[in-house]
């Protein structure tokens, strides 16, 4: 059955500076949904809003017609799993202990993890191929292994929604594809609603069926990935001229930057 995450007119602000303005879109389950946009456009803020770390000043977030805003942290955590951009535990935990933290919404204050919890943890670690790492220290794992452990932690929450903040930004090419293929498989297999932030537009084109393009906290456009990521939209939002080409040898669509537009962003100097 198709599920739906509905972001309905969400506005958000830090210290009176409005970061998100009336953001509205729907995300269906089973496929990947991308959030793209330039730095500071509110991508991470949007994830913080959906995961209820930040209370929106206006609008609401619904999951299958259920209002997420106003729920307890515990209730939201059993529905929404988040994979942050970086994970640095304060002290040295094993990979297993990190994934076991995903059971927090289900384990009582004075309980140890039950057998059912253990089974869920193991299942999550197997599906991201990190069960063999369970006794290793998290801090000693490679970037790709760490990311698989953190995704397993989110899966151990048994969520219906998976939010990922630039899941591949610290990874080499091989790990980037491995992680994204894995996430794509999980979305289909578990019928998850997957929302991921991308800096690399080619990653978004390759993996997302739909994207939302944010600019200065507002939705610029939302829809099918190639309908949104057009030459005009990219140039308007990022200030970069691009060529969008389908590679004759692989059939993959590539977005290739060609020149920066005369109107400069930042202090890079005129060219």
């Amino acid at each position: 059955m198709l599920m739906l995450l509905r972001i309905d007119g969400v506005s958000c602000s830090y210290d009176s500076a409005e970061v998100l303005k009336d953001v509205t879109f729907d995300v269906p389950s089973g496929t990947l949904f991308g959030i793209v946009g330039p730095n500071g456009c509110g991508k991470t803020t949007l994830i913080r809003c959906v995961s209820r770390v930040l209370e929106p000043v206006g609008g609401s977030v619904f999951l299958d017609n259920e209002l997420l805003s106003g729920m307890s942290f515990r209730d939201v955590a059993s529905k929404v799993g988040v994979v942050p951009q970086t994970t640095r535990p304060g002290f040295a935990f094993t990979a297993y202990e990190i994934v076991a933290m995903g059971r927090t919404p289900y384990v009582g204050r004075l309980q140890m993890e039950s057998e059912e919890d253990l089974a869920v943890i193991k299942g999550a670690m197997l599906s991201t191929d990190c069960w063999h790492l369970r006794s290793r220290m998290f801090s000693e794992l490679s970037g790709g292994e760490q990311q698989r452990v953190v995704i397993a932690r989110a899966l151990a929450q048994e969520p219906r929604v998976l939010l990922l903040d630039e899941p591949t930004s610290h990874l080499d090419l091989g790990y980037q594809l491995q992680i994204m293929d894995m996430i794509e498989g999980l979305a289909e297999e578990r019928n998850l609603i997957v929302v991921a932030i991308f800096h690399d537009l080619n990653m978004a084109v390759r993996y997302c069926e739909n994207v939302v393009l944010l600019n200065e906290g507002k939705v610029e456009e939302v829809g099918g990935t190639l309908d949104v990521l057009t030459n005009e939209n990219i140039e308007r939002v990022y200030g970069v001229k691009v060529a969008i080409e389908r590679s004759p040898s692989t059939g993959l669509v590539m977005i290739v930057p060609t020149a920066r537009r005369a109107k400069n962003r930042g202090s890079g100097g005129g060219d």
Partner: peptide, 24 residues
Amino acid sequence: FLFARDMNVMLMGEETAKQLGVDA
């Protein structure tokens, strides 16, 4: 001691702890 498990999760950072269900 009642909050020992919550404190473990808070070692991940307060924001992550909230996303894992702890009222940090």
